[in-house]
Simulated scan of single mutants.
Amino acid sequence: MKNILLKHGEIYTHDGILYNGDLFISDSKISEIGKDITKEDAEIIDLDGKKVVPGFIDIHIHGGVGYDVMDASYEALNSISLHLARHGVTSFCATTMTMDVQYISSALKNISDTMKKGTEGAQILGAYVEGPFISKEHKGAQNERHILEPDINIMNEFIEASDNSIKVVALAPEKDINGDFVKYVIQRNIRVSLGHTNATYEEMKNAVDHGASLAVHTFNGMRGFQHREPGALGEALLDDRIYGELICDFVHSHPASVKILIKIKGVEKIILISDAMLACGFGDGEYAFGGQKVIVDKGIARTENGSLAGSTLTLDKAVANITKLGIPLSEAIKMVSLNPAKAIGIDGRKGSIDIDKDADIVVLDNDLTVNMTIVNGKTVYKK
């Protein structure tokens, strides 16, 4: 793999912004950051002041460009990875849906197999299992026929099928009052994300006390806040032990609600996700998603009964949306890089521009559109 020297960029490092800076990539790692770096054995790319930021990490993504993680094929995941790279995503958790156990297991096996084979675009970090251990009351676009009670035996089937590559599993915490499921899962180094839930504030907090550490797409698919019963949302907002996922398309949550989330939790505890489904990058029309008919109109995906069904959002757009609310780009970037890396325990090698970390780099134009994406030191997209 050839070395790359990025010259004259606006580099967003973990410690601050380096203007007119250089970044040297060697052996798939970030090797040097500074000014006036010279290397004879490198491909030199003059960025002319473009922004250099850490690669985006999408921990909750179902599909794109006509493909779904549940397709359980290499072609599907590889195509999704290429699509994501065009929008600045350098790594992602392939996310499953609430379907029959055998279909989920098949998708998980394919995720593991694809990780071993490698993708041409964004790198797969592992799986995010969204369902079937959720509530019927807040199922959203998940298929109610396949919703199950939390079951360690079924979870073991998933873990075995995935060859231990599951990073996150979603749970409605009111179904695990004694915390046995949460405790078992986190012992297997899998994070528990609470959502699609009708839990009370106390039930939600109980799961966090047992080790749950994320909230599935905050505001959506959970019992809302009421001043006499703060609900699942109240706990998600209040508890600093929880990272709150956020779909920042201003459809799933009003801009004012996003501001409230930022004001209460702070940028350090928010993770921007796309929750994108197969229509992302494909346009309006009728699609099948999780075994159900979904209609996408003006970029908004809904089931026939009107429930939102994932999104057609990309993370570069999510970052741009956050900055429109007055959040500095340096802070917005944390929500798509360092925060998700910390949430799933990979911040030692990904999530920020630091020496010896993986060379997962995104170059942004001044309008925050993606100019170039580098994954593990390899250029996988160039405008």
Results as ranks from 00 to 15, higher is better:
6 L>Q: 04
16 G>E: 10
29 K>E: 06
37 I>E: 06
70 M>R: 06
70 M>T: 05
70 M>C: 11
86 R>F: 01
86 R>G: 03
87 H>S: 08
90 T>G: 07
92 F>H: 02
101 V>Y: 08
103 Y>R: 13
107 A>T: 02
111 I>F: 08
120 E>R: 10
120 E>S: 14
135 S>T: 09
139 K>E: 07
140 G>D: 00
142 Q>D: 09
145 R>K: 15
154 I>C: 05
155 M>T: 05
164 N>H: 15
165 S>R: 11
168 V>P: 01
172 A>K: 01
176 D>P: 03
182 V>Q: 00
185 V>Y: 00
210 H>I: 12
215 A>I: 11
216 V>K: 01
224 G>A: 11
230 P>M: 08
235 E>K: 10
250 F>R: 09
252 H>S: 05
252 H>V: 05
256 A>V: 14
262 I>Q: 09
269 K>F: 03
272 L>Q: 04
285 G>D: 07
286 E>K: 13
295 I>C: 10
298 K>L: 10
300 I>C: 09
301 A>K: 03
303 T>P: 01
307 S>N: 14
320 A>Q: 15
323 T>R: 11
329 L>I: 13
334 K>T: 08
340 P>L: 05
341 A>P: 01
343 A>C: 00
346 I>T: 02
359 A>W: 00
361 I>F: 03
365 D>E: 15
370 V>Q: 10
372 M>T: 13
376 N>I: 00
377 G>H: 03
379 T>S: 13
